[in-house]
Write a protein that binds this DNA or RNA. Sequence first.
DNA 1: TGTATTAGAGTACATTTGTTTTAATTGTGA
DNA 2: TCACAATTAAAACAAATGTACTCTAATACA
Lengths: 205, 205
Amino acid sequence: MNSSDNNNLSEAQNELYIWIKNYMKDFHHSPSIRQMMQAMGLKSPAPIQSRLKHLQQKGFISWQEGKARTLQIVDEVLGGVPIMGSVAAGGLIETFSDVNEELDISEVLKKKDIFALTVNGDSMIDACIAHGDMVLMEPIKDAYSLRNGTIVSAMVPGLGTTLKYFFKRENKIFLEAANPAYEPIELNLEDVVFQGRLLAVWRKV
Amino acid sequence: MNSSDNNNLSEAQNELYIWIKNYMKDFHHSPSIRQMMQAMGLKSPAPIQSRLKHLQQKGFISWQEGKARTLQIVDEVLGGVPIMGSVAAGGLIETFSDVNEELDISEVLKKKDIFALTVNGDSMIDACIAHGDMVLMEPIKDAYSLRNGTIVSAMVPGLGTTLKYFFKRENKIFLEAANPAYEPIELNLEDVVFQGRLLAVWRKV
DNA sequence: TGTATTAGAGTACATTTGTTTTAATTGTGA
DNA sequence: TCACAATTAAAACAAATGTACTCTAATACA
């Protein structure tokens, strides 16, 4: 959802919506109604109120009544990047479709208490997690609910913090690398402190 | 930079700074001075003004004078995730250090005109880009400045859009996969349209 | 101890800003 | 053309809000 149709927005509503998104991208705070008025070339706040109301009814924006500059873009707080389509990384043939989705990184970022770790080494290389990658982790509340195959960061006394596949078999914990060069680590549940569960991988080139 | 020392901030300043960051994470707009006043348990706006001034002088925040709720966190607009340390993904031993950095995803997201593509297939698997990953791309202004080894998305007539390593040798363009199962594609410069240069990889699990 | 510095309370004020209301204007369809 | 609806202008209002100022209390320091 970006520029062209935007569902069932009128021309004026869409223009305002786009302007607001750009303003908030630039200044990181909501514009005031009178600013929008000026930007739209209007001479009274009423039309803006009307358009805002419509945008709200259609679920595009929301704000706190009576409070200044509390507008926010619904469900796309920030970090929305337009997804232009998909690329073949094989032999598939595909063309750029129009923009139909948005990559919402903030959906993950919004979670509370998440943290990031720098990956050191290549033991997870077969899971496509390379040396230097950043992994976004979510704290693990109870280790009992961990499912086999989950990638976790765990603190193994004497071994340090490590990123591995988690498996549980017969009250034994196995931490397995995604690289045949590394042997699985076998542990008792009480010997390991799980720090986080893998949410996402971020690699900046 | 997160909770503990925060450079040379006083206790009160740091408390306010943390509170503001959390407020803005929750509501996606700046709090008002009187809200901060309440939150800090104060009964007059003056102390908040003072603390804000200090925070500004030390470069933590900024705002537009006279405008309501225009506060912003400097240089960490959003998307800052604390980096808790690094994990061994090999045999390395490393412990959680304290938080000393922040993963600033927004640094990439702030760039204008970037777009995302969904990866389809496994031809870039040796570059640790897997099927289903999202790749963040930056538009390519001029193809002449592309350096060998850059990962690009290119539109090859009759073949579609594809993600490959870029190489140029003797006025010929080679698009090579990171997977020995795929043959390099040889092209003339005029036969290919480069769409983007790889900025980052995002994988949500 | 006494003084200087800082932080906070209390108050007041001007501006910004959301909201309401009414009238004028424009557009649309019968 | 006429009536009806939607849009806009204009003005006014009240609440929210940033800012400035004075006075008091706490703190630090010599």
